[in-house]
Design a protein around this nucleic acid. Structure first.
Length: 579
RNA sequence: GCCCCCAUGGCCUAGUUUGGAUAUGGCACCAGCCUCCGGAGCUGGGGAUCUCGGGUUCGAAUCCCGAUGGGGGCACCA
């Protein structure tokens, strides 16, 4: 149930019929009016030319006709219509707005805002980081964006499956295996989880390969045998990859991120899908060959730059990463109605090449790709090689520690167990929120003080309002639920109305987030709604309010707490009862 | 060399896709608010020629062209 949708329907219907009578084929499009000037605004400027009238005049005339129309019919939700500076402003009947919104939330609880279940299946690929070392924060945007998007789409009603594509084939994977095999005892193991323990082997092997042509030769030979189907090498490489992946999964779990499927790249070589892709691509009109290696000439597709060729086999006939990715995408497109990929912006060109190649393979559907810009450090790009990285695990550790100190300072009365639990909820929330609050195409510079911000525009700020609301409800016990339809009659303060307006927007916002694949708007919404609650909290005492008013306010607090908890949940952030 | 993305107060950011009324919040700064439901909060204040230059339009942060600055990419790597 979307309280605003009903209102929109009424305004569109009334204005549509009036314009229709005038013979104007103009589907009314509404915008938001500035504060205090109504709930839906119709700009009359575009009509000026058609009607040969001043916009101000048009607005006044239309307002009169709307008023007449309103008197004749039963549009309950529209309170009034006014003309102002060339705009036609519709006002939502405040009592109805409050009644409908509070009732919807009270009845639906945590399902308020949930979209109708759709049949169409979405496969969302995200994270897919190479299993050769721990996550660093430069790449942490991917799993957080991906997981949040999945949560929102699912809530919006989509049938969605999330997938991590594991690169257990290719050079990276072989370098790691070569390193572990050949450098045992020569390289000091890292500490802790598998990903940290084993990454030094990868780093050292990678360096050796660049210095020493013999090593490179060895690794290439190993790679070739692997791809040609050598079971022993295959098993070994995959084993090391999965060891590291285990450590990486642990980090994801810490961040409240669980994926449905882990799809291994090697599978598409073993099941011959990759061979099929190569054979089919060779029949493309754009396919060429050079020294035994095959490529697609993409100049005609608008690909520009130094190199317009897109290689899909090496000269030894083995596949490349993108070839295997093509097989994976064909598989995904077969399994799902929509395919969404979350990728770093360094993959923009590859994504275009992939889309073109899919077309050449006869695939009509295309993956929808969303790109995020990188997180860098104040001193520059993150680089594992130069030791200029912040690992996600270290960030998490730091966040939990700082959150623990805060909790301990503010709530020394809590048990040790509670303090730890709250610290985790707050620390992880702060990290996730900090990534999500910014539009993903904007690059961001990682700063500890921002990533661990617990005030203002942050998850802890929102979580705090949830704890406050919970505290009130705890003290009130189960009262308040007696009042339902009449509650609106007691809510007369502008702060109450402002808060309810925000709660009414929630269902529409969920759909918009899902439709546009924009998730930062959910973060903005929650921050704004939490702010409104704090203002209400300050101005409208609940527990000490007189009979009636007290119950009505309790209903509002309960509604707020429910929506804010649902919203935080969509961001993968927990909402504590106290903190 | 060529292609793509980004640019909003000292710093971070919303609004840009679908042009519309006074440009959204936060941090920092200044001044206030706990005998009162939790001050991780609230109120007030100062601070923005929306990078620059053209154009389209009744109207541009938003659309178009150009420039500048920053980021990314242009492998028989992934």
């Amino acid at each position: 149930m979307d309280p605003l949708e009903l209102f929109r329907n009424e305004t569109e219907s009334i204005l549509g019929s009036i314009l229709g009578k005038k013979g104007i084929d103009h589907r009314p499009e509404f915008g938001d009016a500035p504060k205090g000037l109504g709930d839906a605004a119709f700009p009359c400027f575009p009509l000026a030319k058609v009607l040969k009238m001043a916009p101000v005049k048009i607005a006044e005339e239309l307002a009169e006709e709307c008023k007449a129309h309103l008197r004749r019919s039963d549009f309950r939700l529209i309170e009034k219509v006014e003309a102002a500076k060339g705009y036609l402003n519709f006002y939502y009947n405040e009592k109805e707005l409050m009644r409908l919104t509070l009732r919807a939330i009270d009845e639906m609880g945590r399902d308020y805002g949930k979209g109708k279940q759709r049949k169409e299946r979405i496969i969302l690929e995200h994270t897919s980081a190479n299993p050769n070392g721990p996550f660093h924060v430069g790449r942490a945007r991917n799993p957080i964006i991906g997981d949040t998007l999945a949560r929102i789409l699912r809530f919006a009603g989509c049938d969605i499956v999330t997938e991590y594509y594991v690169n257990d084939m290719g050079k990276q994977a072989v370098i790691l295996a070569w390193g572990i095999d050949n450098l045992k005892g020569k390289v000091e193991k890292g500490k802790g989880k598998n990903d940290h323990r084993l990454v030094p082997f990868y780093q050292r092997a990678s360096a050796l390969m660049n210095e020493n042509p013999d090593v490179l030769e060895e690794i290439n030979a190993m790679l070739k045998r692997y791809e040609k189907g050598d079971r022993k090498i295959g098993k070994e490489v995959q084993h090391y990859c999965s060891l590291i992946l285990e450590g990486m999964k642990h980090t994801l779990r810490e961040m409240n991120i669980l994926l449905d499927n882990y799809v291994f790249e090697s599978r598409y070589v073993y099941n011959r899908d990759v061979t099929g892709v190569i054979e089919k691509l060779r029949q493309s009109d754009y396919s060429r060959e050079e020294h035994g290696a095959y490529y697609l000439e993409l100049e005609d597709f608008g690909i520009q730059g130094r190199e317009t060729r897109f290689f899909y086999t090496r000269k030894d006939g083995t596949s490349l990463y993108t070839t295997r990715d093509l097989a994976y995408h064909l598989d995904k497109l077969r399994r799902g109605d929509r395919v969404i990929d979350v990728l770093g912006e360094d993959h923009r060109l590859q994504a275009r090449q992939l889309a073109i190649a899919l077309g050449e393979l006869g695939e009509e559907k295309k993956p929808e790709v969303i790109f995020y810009a990188f997180v860098s450090l104040p001193e520059g790009k993150m680089s594992t090689r130069r030791g200029r990285v912040v690992y996600l695990d270290n960030l998490i550790e730091e966040a939990l520690e700082r959150a623990y100190k805060e909790v301990h300072k503010r709530r020394p009365d809590l048990s040790e167990e509670d303090k730890r639990r709250i610290a985790k909820i707050v620390g992880i929330g702060a990290i996730r929120y900090n990534i999500i609050r910014v539009q993903m195409e904007k690059s961001m510079v990682f700063r500890w003080e921002e990533a661990l911000n617990f005030e203002g525009d942050s998850a802890p700020f929102i979580q705090y309002t949830h704890a406050r609301a919970s505290s009130i409800l705890r003290k009130a016990g189960d009262e308040g639920s007696v009042l339902k339809e009449e509650a609106a009659g007691y809510l007369l303060d502008p702060n109450e109305l402002a808060l309810i307006r925000a709660l009414a927007r929630f269902p529409g916002l969920v759909q918009e987030c899902a439709y546009r694949l924009k998730i930062h708007t959910m973060a903005s919404y929650l921050r704004e709604t939490a702010r409104l609650f704090n203002q209400f909290y300050r101005e409208c005492p609940v527990l000490t309010a007189p009979e009636g008013e007290r119950e009505a306010r309790l209903l509002l607090v309960r509604a707020f707490r429910s929506v804010i908890a649902t919203g935080l949940g969509l961001l993968g952030i927990e909402a504590p009862e106290f903190m």
